[in-house]
Design a protein around this nucleic acid. Structure first.
Length: 267
DNA sequence: ACTCGTGTTAGCTG
DNA sequence: TCAGCTAACACGAG
């Protein structure tokens, strides 16, 4: 399920296969996407326009059209993916369990939003779980700095002097955009920091290590196909052992999310 | 059968 | 007022 690496792969698919083509039709499920939402609003805004860029901040995607034109915002939720189909049967996918080129796509009721482009191409937001979203002119001001590009100074500034557990702080999308539950555990494990530590109590050296660890985790998972490819992900269960030192993994619940860390190294 | 969850957010609490 | 937490969303996976 999508975290920043999966969303970035979806962005790449959008960039390669949906730009500079006329939008000729929209199919959508009213009760699902943005609220209030009317398929007719999407049609009125987008038909006749063409996407010019495919953008991402954190886990939010957006597609601007011509200057000052409407913007299509997309979020994949927990299990959504982007599928682009072409007339000749080629299918390009990004998002949950992303593949560059997958088998034929059979349109189903899980296609929550379909944007038909000229030449028989179509952009589809496929989401069984219905936790994804499509909106016109998304509000991007609520997102913090993008985790992939934030520099050390801005990273420290974003963490601030909050008293909340560092793991919960990393997960707060208005502070830092793009880190989900698995990447937060992977990042803290790489930095050898206990996820329950209060943000404000971390030393300068520790926030530096955290920034390095986050970037390394993102770089690795981007190169290896997703947030589930992290080094300690397989050890996130009762009885699991730290892949570095063999220590026992400990489970906890932080910010409402399941949390696993090495009981020996993460302090 | 039953519990959990890789995301987000409205609404509650202190 | 506000930071922080919980439940709810929906459905597949274990």
């Amino acid at each position: 399920m999508p975290e920043l690496p999966e969303v970035e792969s979806a962005r790449t698919v959008l960039e390669r296969h949906t730009l500079r083509r006329n939008i000729v039709g929209i199919d959508a499920v009213d009760s699902y996407v943005g609220r209030p939402f009317q398929t007719e609003d999407f049609r009125r805004a987008l038909i006749g326009a063409r996407f010019t860029h495919a953008c991402r901040r954190g886990k939010t995607l957006w597609l601007p059209t011509t200057r000052d034109g409407p913007v299509l915002g997309l979020h994949l939720g927990m299990g959504g993916r982007i599928v682009v189909t072409s007339k000749s049967g080629e299918v390009f996918e990004g998002g949950d369990s992303a593949r560059g080129l997958a088998g034929a796509h059979q349109p189903t009721t899980w296609d929550r939003l379909t944007v038909h482009l000229d030449g028989g191409r179509a952009l589809r937001l496929v989401d069984k779980q219905r936790l994804g979203r499509a909106v016109l002119d998304p509000d991007l001001d609520r997102l913090g700095r993008d985790a992939l590009t934030v520099d050390l100074a801005d990273f420290r500034n974003a963490l601030g002097t909050s008293t909340v557990a560092i793991k919960a702080r990393l997960l707060d999308q208005s502070v830092l955009a793009g880190v989900g539950n698995l990447l937060a555990d992977e990042t803290l494990w790489r930095a050898r920091i206990d996820p329950t530590r209060r943000t404000v109590d971390l030393t300068t050296a520790e926030t530096g290590a955290l920034h390095r660890a986050m970037r390394a985790a993102l770089k690795w998972t981007l190169a290896h196909g997703g947030s589930h490819t992290g080094h300690m992900i397989a050890a996130r269960h009762a009885g699991g052992h730290c892949p570095r030192c063999g220590g026992e993994m400990r489970g906890a619940r932080i910010g409402g999310r399941s949390t696993w860390s090495c009981s020996v190294e993460q302090r």
